[in-house]
Design a protein around this nucleic acid. Structure first.
Length: 513
RNA sequence: GGCCUCAUCGUCUAGCGGCUAGGACAUCAGGUUCUCAUCCUGGAAACAGGGGUCCGAUUCCCCUUGAGGCUACCA
């Protein structure tokens, strides 16, 4: 029997959830669930300097929002977790809970453990104390750069500091770090699940610092220890970690631990193909939530960036459950993928079209409430009934929720401002135009409130319009909207209601004279 | 600079020795239509270059080129 699959998402709380990170989390989740395994959320907060208040909460919120449920790890409230494992309060973060067999899941809460393992490596000769000051290291690197050599620690402390000196320094509480000792002349080979064979020469790898002078471990040490202790079977992470893979492999060997499987995901790219970054657009998942992208769309889109089911598959829209069923690490691409908003817009529009009007209303309301035209509108224009009619008409015209009403502000205006010439259809005379306006005025006036439906309006108007639809419909639509482009006059009249529609037509008639 | 990785239409990709190199988004043209959107039809659009291997390379190997990542007491 194979061991139960366990994967982890291990972000550091240094900012908001980055879409690249989010995709890693998604792939972690898909892989875990596809294989009936566990998904763990661990927090790698070993860099105190880069800690950002609120980042931890943001990370948890985004995972929760997206519905990427994890089985163990760090939670914000008891309600979020999905089993009966007892939760404990985080030592370092008020309000944060931890639950799972392998607590703590926050690295800053298990510093002694990392220290213990680091000491073990020193004892076994695979690591050593380094008392070099930052200034010295900086100068050393500068010199090496000038000489066009790869900047690497020169092992001063390994060769020139005696046992006694080490003990003396430690007794005097001198500041120190613990460095990993790279073996010489060795080739480290690994079998990456997405890249296949990769290899590295140890001679070209620096003696990585494992324990920092502030008593915190570096990523490399903490990551390996935790992955081992938590029984992680598959390490799925971004390609930026590939160069440090040999260090990790060596650590597993030094500790004599079983190696997990590794999968390094391709990077998400800016349009100019550099690593996706701020500056060239939004990178935080929360930015996209704010813009009105649905979680289903973001998940769908991001999943397809670097993976697809292959085999002549033409399906583009996948639910989270479908993704779980179809996902395979072997089908993950090797090359980076450009984060292209155009396709996101399309996918989002597809998901919006699938919503019921009530669902759309619920999701769209917060976006309406931010719009100036909405804030200025009268109370009757803010009623759920009215807004739902607006949304019914906008369904097919909405790439994202933040676009609501944007192109149809005339719905909310109390008075339309437009040039009289807008009312004219092609070369029609003022006289004829007025006649036509009066014709629809009369026609609509005769439709009772009860019969004021889209279907009815369309049927009645088209019956009268006959061959020359434009002569009747264009002036009507222009009178109702005051714009060049809009939904059909039937839809607009329906949304506006009888009273308002007739009022707008009346105004148009008076304009023509 | 060194190391590692990558390379099919503008973008996301299918392809795993023999295909008119397929799909999607975007784009263009037409249709539907009072305008817009939707929808339908059609078009343009790619194997980075050079060597091999092979009867035969987009596919396998090598080189070149290009791109990216890493190169911290950051993750």
């Amino acid at each position: 029997m194979d061991k139960k699959v366990r994967v982890r998402f291990a972000p550091s709380p240094t900012g908001f959830m980055h879409v690249g990170n989010f995709r890693s989390a998604l792939y972690d989740y898909l892989f875990a669930k596809k294989n009936g395994g566990d998904f763990v959320l661990r927090i790698e907060d070993t860099d105190q300097k880069r800690f950002v208040p609120g980042a931890l909460e943001s990370l948890i919120n985004v995972l929760d929002w997206a519905g990427l449920r994890y089985d163990e790890g760090v939670f914000q409230s008891a309600g979020i977790k999905n089993d009966k494992i007892p939760t404990t309060e985080s030592k370092n973060y008020p309000g944060i809970l931890e639950a799972g067999e392998f607590e703590p899941y926050i690295q800053s809460e298990k510093l002694e453990i990392y220290k213990k393992y680091a000491d073990q490596l020193v004892k076994s000769g695979h690591a050593y104390y380094c008392f070099c000051e930052p200034e010295r290291l900086e100068k050393m690197r500068a010199d090496q750069t000038v000489e066009k050599k790869a900047p690497m620690y020169d092992r001063y402390c390994l060769h020139n500091v005696s046992e006694e000196e080490i003990n003396k320094n430690l007794k005097n509480s001198c500041s120190y770090t613990i460095r990993m000792k790279m073996p010489e002349g060795e080739m480290i080979e690994a079998d990456d699940l997405v890249r296949g064979k990769v290899s590295f020469k140890t001679d070209l790898i620096d003696d990585q610092i494992l324990m920092k002078s502030d008593g915190f471990p570096t990523y490399h040490l903490a990551n390996v220890i935790d992955d081992h202790e938590m029984g992680i079977t598959h390490v799925i992470r971004g390609e930026e970690w590939l160069p440090s893979l040999p260090k990790h492999i060596l650590l597993y060997r030094y500790f004599d631990w079983e190696l997990p499987k590794f999968a390094h995901l391709p990077l998400l790219l800016n349009p100019d193909k550099t690593k996706l970054s701020k500056r060239q657009g939004d990178v935080a998942v929360e930015d996209y939530i704010k813009k009105g992208y649905l979680k289903e769309a973001i998940i769908n889109f991001v999943a397809l960036l670097g993976w697809n089911p292959g085999a002549g598959e033409t399906q583009e829209i996948f639910s989270l459950d479908e993704l779980v069923q179809r996902f395979e690490l072997e089908k993950v691409h090797k090359a980076g993928a450009v984060f292209d908003l155009k396709k996101l817009d399309w996918i989002n529009a597809e998901y919006i079209k699938k919503l019921s009007i009530d669902e759309l209303y619920e999701k769209a309301l917060p976006f309406f409430e931010q719009k100036e035209f909405f804030i200025q509108a009268g109370a009757e224009k803010k009623s759920p009934e009215f807004l739902k009619r607006v949304l019914t008409v906008e369904f097919d015209r909405l790439p994202k929720l933040s676009d609501v009403g944007e192109n149809n502000q005339f719905f909310f205006a109390t008075d339309l401002n437009y040039d009289k010439s807008l009312l004219r259809w092609k070369e029609m005379t003022d006289e004829y135009l007025k006649k036509n306006l009066e014709k629809v005025q009369e026609l609509l006036g005769n439709i009772s409130e009860d019969e004021w439906s889209r279907e009815n309006l369309e049927a009645k108007l088209l019956a009268v319009a006959g061959e020359k639809r434009g002569e009747l419909l264009w002036p009507l639509r222009a009178a109702l909207t005051g714009t060049q482009k809009s939904p059909s006059p039937f839809e607009v009249a329906w949304v506006l209601g009888k009273t308002e529609s007739l009022r707008r037509i009346e105004k148009a008639v008076s304009l023509v004279v």
